Measured scan of single mutants.
Amino acid sequence: GIDPFTGEAIAKFNFNGDTQVEMSFRKGERITLLRQVDENWYEGRIPGTSRQGIFPITYVDVIKRPL
């Protein structure tokens, strides 16, 4: 089901994660935001896939912030 505490964002740019914990994505992908890790990073996942990880806040347009 849908978790009411998650947020939502759209990727503004392609992001290629450097490490296992970073999640790569392509511009235009819809991302579920799980939490804000710190002032620069979100943790999120791509709905319908097993992809999950952290990524820079500046790479996405936030539609709804996670609670």
Rank of each mutant, 00 (worst) to 15 (best):
T49C: 03
Q52S: 09
P47R: 09
K27H: 07
S24V: 03
R45I: 10
R30V: 11
K27E: 10
L67R: 03
G7V: 10
F15C: 03
E29Q: 05
S50C: 12
I57Q: 07
W41D: 02
G17E: 03
I54S: 03
V21S: 12
R45T: 11
F13K: 12
F25C: 02
T32Y: 08
V37E: 03
G48F: 08
T32P: 00
Q20L: 13
Q20A: 15
S24P: 06
G44A: 02
P56D: 04
R51N: 04
I2K: 14
G7L: 09
E39N: 09
E8S: 11
G53A: 01
S24A: 07
R45M: 14
T6C: 12
L67F: 07
E43Q: 07
V37Y: 08
I54L: 10
F15K: 02
V37G: 01
A11N: 00
I57N: 06
G48D: 08
I31T: 02
F5D: 12
Y42T: 03
G53D: 01
A11K: 00
P4F: 15
I10G: 01
D61V: 14
P56Q: 03
I2C: 14
I63W: 06
I57L: 09
R30M: 11
D38G: 11
A9G: 10
I46P: 01
G17P: 06
S24H: 05
A9S: 04
N16V: 12
V62H: 04
F5G: 14
L67H: 15
M23F: 08
V60E: 00
K64N: 09
I63N: 05
K12G: 03
P66H: 05
G53T: 01
E43V: 08
V37K: 05
P56L: 06
G7S: 09
Q36A: 09
I2D: 15
K64R: 12
M23S: 01
Q52I: 09
I63T: 07
N40S: 10
Q52H: 12
I54D: 01
E29D: 07
F13M: 14
D61C: 12
G48K: 05
I46H: 02
T19A: 11
A9C: 09
V21T: 11
G28P: 01
N14V: 05
D3F: 11
R30C: 09
M23C: 03
E22D: 05
R45W: 11
V21M: 14
L33D: 05
V37I: 13
I31M: 04
F13N: 09
E8D: 10
E22F: 11
G17K: 04
K27D: 04
I31K: 00
K64P: 07
L67G: 15
R65W: 15
E39C: 11
T32R: 07
R51H: 04
F15R: 04
I46Y: 01
E22L: 08
I54C: 07
T32A: 09
E22V: 05
I10L: 08
D38Y: 09
G17F: 02
G17D: 02
P47L: 09
T6R: 10
G7P: 07
V21L: 14
I57F: 06
R30D: 03
E39P: 09
R35Y: 08
R65H: 15
F13L: 12
P4L: 14
T58N: 11
T58D: 13
D61Q: 10
V62S: 03
T49I: 02
F55G: 00
V37C: 08
A9P: 00
G7C: 12
Q52K: 10
P4H: 14
W41V: 05
R45H: 11
N16K: 12
K12L: 14
D61R: 11
P4R: 12
R51K: 06
M23V: 05
T6D: 11
V62E: 04
G1L: 12
R35K: 10
D3I: 12
D18P: 08
I2Y: 13
V60A: 04
Q52T: 09
Q36D: 03
T49A: 03
N14F: 05
G17C: 05
E8N: 07
Q36M: 10
N16R: 11
R30N: 06
E8G: 04
I46E: 01
T32K: 09
G17Q: 05
E29M: 03
E22Y: 12
R30F: 13
S50W: 08
E43N: 04
P47M: 09
R35G: 09
D18A: 15
S50N: 15
S24M: 04
E29N: 02
S24F: 04
R26A: 11
L33V: 10
P66Q: 05
I54A: 04
M23W: 04
G44M: 01
A9D: 01
G1R: 04
L34K: 03
F55V: 07
R35A: 09
N14G: 06
I46M: 05
G28K: 03
I63E: 06
Q36N: 05
P66D: 05
D3C: 14
E39T: 09
S50H: 11
G53Q: 01
Q20C: 12
V21D: 13
G44V: 01
A11P: 01
K64I: 08
M23T: 01
I54N: 06
G28F: 05
S24W: 06
P4S: 14
F5R: 09
N40I: 14
R30Q: 08
W41T: 10
A11Y: 01
E29Y: 02
D38L: 06
F55D: 00
S24Q: 05
T49M: 03
Q20T: 11
I31H: 00
R51P: 00
I2P: 13
E29V: 03
N16T: 13
G28Q: 03
I57Y: 05
F5I: 10
L33P: 01
G1M: 13
E8P: 05
G1F: 09
E22N: 06
Q20R: 11
R45N: 08
T19F: 08
I63V: 11
D18W: 11
P47E: 15
L67D: 13
E29L: 01
R35V: 07
N40K: 11
K12R: 11
D61F: 13
V60P: 00
M23R: 00
T58P: 08
I2N: 15
F15Y: 13
G44T: 00
M23A: 02
T19L: 10
T6E: 13
P56I: 03
V62F: 07
A11E: 01
Y42N: 01
P56T: 02
P4D: 15
E8Y: 14
E39Y: 08
D3P: 12
Q52W: 10
P4W: 15
Q36R: 11
W41P: 00
R26Q: 13
F25P: 00
F25M: 03
K64Q: 10
V21W: 14
R35P: 01
Y59T: 08
N40G: 11
N14L: 04
T49W: 02
E43I: 07
D18M: 15
S24I: 03
G53V: 01
V60K: 00
K12T: 08
G7H: 13
P66Y: 04
D18V: 15
F55S: 00
P47Y: 09
R30I: 13
L67C: 14
T6K: 11
V60D: 00
N16Y: 14
R65F: 15
Y59E: 03
G53C: 02
I54H: 06
A11I: 02
R65M: 15
T49H: 03
Q20W: 12
F15A: 00
N16H: 13
A9Y: 05
R35C: 09
G48T: 05
K27Q: 10
K64S: 07
A9T: 03
Y59A: 11
L34Q: 04
G1C: 14
T19E: 10
D3R: 09
Q36I: 10
G28N: 06
P47W: 09
Y59L: 10
R26G: 07
I10N: 03
R30L: 12
I46S: 01
V37F: 07
Q52A: 09
R26C: 13
Q36C: 08
I54Y: 09
T19C: 10
V37T: 04
L67N: 14
R30H: 14
Y59S: 09
T49D: 05
D18H: 15
Y59C: 10
L67Q: 15
F55Y: 01
W41R: 07
Q36W: 08
G48P: 05
I10S: 03
F5L: 12
D61S: 10
Y59H: 12
I57E: 07
T49P: 02
G1I: 13
P47Q: 11
R65C: 13
P56H: 04
T58V: 12
Q20G: 11
L34V: 09
V62I: 10
S50F: 09
E8K: 08
A11M: 01
T49V: 03
I10V: 12
W41S: 07
F15E: 00
I31Q: 00
I46Q: 01
T19I: 06
K64C: 11
E39S: 10
I46N: 01
E8Q: 10
P47H: 10
G53S: 01
F55C: 01
V62C: 05
F15V: 02
Q20D: 15
P47C: 08
T19K: 14
Q20F: 11
D3Y: 13
F55K: 00
A9E: 00
E8R: 07
G48M: 07
F25D: 00
W41N: 08
V37R: 05
F25T: 01
I63R: 06
S24G: 07
R35N: 07
V37W: 08
E43P: 00
N40Q: 13
Q36Y: 07
G48V: 02
S50R: 10
I31V: 05
T58F: 11
I54P: 02
K12F: 04
W41K: 05
K27C: 08
I63P: 05
Y42F: 12
M23L: 15
V60H: 00
R51C: 05
